[in-house]
Amino acid sequence: MQCTPNELLALLKRALDALPGHRLDADAVARNVVELEVLGLSGVHPSLALFNDDRNTRAQGPAIIHDDGVVHMADGSLLAWAPQVIDLAICQVDHTATVTLSIDSARDPLGLLPELIRSDRTRWRSAELSWPEDQDGHRCVLWLEADAVDPWLGRLDGPMAEAGRPKNPVSLMLARAGAGPALPKPPGVRWRITPDAFASRRHRALIRGLEIDDHDWDILNRLADRVLVESSDRSRKGAGE
């Protein structure tokens, strides 16, 4: 299914609105999913799991923050809770030149990327996000400068991934704006997608729209339709008829 980013956004918001008793910032979650698709990364498909698991939507959110900067996600999705995690990281970076949050038991680490992109970039100077890509010690790495639109995305191989890198599953580092050096672009990473490549994906999404898997699109529509109220002669009066 080909759709525009706006159509996907509206559909996701309706689908989230239809979730009874959810406690998410649905607007932010929907925007983050759309942004992932705009960047050519998978957003819609993993987001469908949010609708089947109360932990993702009705829970209180990540249990955070010990002094050592560990965020406990209890297998929650960062597609759902990225806004709150980035809020906390920004709060912490206010007090220290560089902050590292280790996020345990989190799914969908890429969910942090769009929230990071949309966050208040006057508060931080550079960011690095990494998470295990497989069981062999390879890690995905994202590096983003606050004054650039898009990140670098690449892979760090086993031994180098172990050396000097945080071992927690998902690691988010932020360097404060105007205080000390920026985080260096991590060495040894084989960069797969450059900011220029992301920019051209954005451009293509704006011109040609997004390609969403038909099955996923149907599921999302069915979820979104749950927010609709059946029509009747009486309800038409509620529109002025």
């Binding site: 609105d17 009874p20 339709d225 749950r226 609709l228 109220v229 029509s231 038409r236 529109a239």
Partner: peptide, 24 residues
């Protein structure tokens, strides 16, 4: 609320009309 007819927004009377649980 949103009606199933072309997603048209409509106004319902609380406690009387159906759809309150799907309120915008």
């Amino acid at each position: 609320y949103r009606s199933e007819e072309k997603l048209e927004p409509r106004l319902g009377i609380r406690g009387v009309d159906p759809g309150e649980e799907r309120e915008m």
